[in-house]
Design a protein around this nucleic acid. Structure first.
Lengths: 195, 195
DNA sequence: CCTTTTTCAGAATGATTATTCTGAAATATA
DNA sequence: TATATTTCAGAATAATCATTCTGAAAAAGG
């Protein structure tokens, strides 16, 4: 009973997530959160206790939605080298898409926080990316798409770094052709390792 | 004549550069600059007009010292595939070196600023890295270390992204073994392209 | 030593920050 | 409709920010 909130917790989180992703944590003020989400201060502070709390929730949501959508397929039992190729195809085009100048919230946070007050989500993110690649590559070995002699641990860490490099270029709105080139070469490399 | 400054412009810039590199621009306050450099406020503001001015000078110095030291060799006429391999060897070990948790000031700035108020130095940085790789790879082609059929434009953009990915991992103090693996695979890849 | 110039330490300033408070508005229930 | 509850808009608060100001300290030149 009583007055209704002007914005659901979910909508608020979605919009705040976008602001954090665009501006980073430190550069996002409570004022612009209120202005750009359309939520009231009361709504913001009663739904999430603080700016930190809202940010933590945003990292969580980002993981469960964006990272899940992109890397979830690589974690499936049917993932293989084609799944990996598709991922690089996707990010190769991102330089001229909606996230150009925005990037990946988790990669951005990894760099913003560095070693100080780093959210746990950052190392988990590296582990998840590497693990997703590893799963797909091991499946590829099982399917004989890749040689069993290949060190998939080394290769999956390397693909993790490759993707992070793409995220930096996308975030900084680098020349889309450069981004496309970087992704193309990653695909070429993977294809060259094929049986 | 008159009292002497307690710190030369050069020393001040060096120490400020280190703080910016560790904490980023937005998270670095004038107070900690004064405290950690040992310079007086007067010194800081008379030598460099503002925090922005000091940061711009720091980017410049970083370019002329650190980037020059690491990528300068790739820009030489005698650079070749060995020079590139040495670079990845160097950064592969950085996960357990002094810059673990610190990273590259320019990569950090690329991510911190994103598309908004991005210093010119950021795109110049991408151009320089790609160009340095390109020079070394073209030399390698001339020396017949690499096939003339190879698209060195694509490969150099990809190596640029690879290095940026390493910088993210180094910045976030990722597992040193993961960093080493990523660099090792880049080296393996380059070696596999050799004649 | 005295004067002039320069720099120092730290206080002052005014803007911006995150968060809390306040009285009015909205709405659910009785 | 009347009352109780919840939320709203925006003012208030206290901290921190970048930058400027101030009077004293230092040092160079005469």
């Amino acid at each position: 009973m009583g007055r209704r909130k002007n914005l659901s917790e979910d909508e608020l989180l979605d919009r705040a997530l976008h602001v954090f992703r665009r501006d980073g944590f430190a550069r996002t003020s409570a004022d612009v959160l209120v202005r750009e989400t359309g939520a009231s201060r009361y709504n913001l502070y009663s739904s999430y206790a603080s700016k930190d709390g809202l940010f933590a929730a945003a990292l969580d949501r980002y993981n469960n939605e964006i990272i899940e959508a992109r890397f979830g397929p690589l974690e499936q039992p049917d993932a293989d080298i084609e799944t990996v190729l598709a991922l690089f195809d996707f990010y190769g085009a991102a330089g001229s898409g909606a996230v150009a100048g925005i990037g990946c919230l988790l990669c951005n946070s990894a760099v913003e926080f560095g070693a100080q007050n780093q959210p746990d989500a950052v190392q988990q993110y590296f582990d998840r990316l590497s693990g997703a690649f590893r799963n797909a590559l091991e499946n590829a070995q099982a399917k004989s798409q890749l040689s069993k002699d290949l060190d998939v641990g080394v290769l999956s860490d390397s693909l993790c770094a490759n993707v992070l490099g793409l995220f930096v270029l996308i975030r900084a709105k680098a020349d889309p052709e450069r981004i496309q080139n970087a992704a193309t070469q990653a695909r070429n490399h993977l294809n060259s390792l094929r049986h």
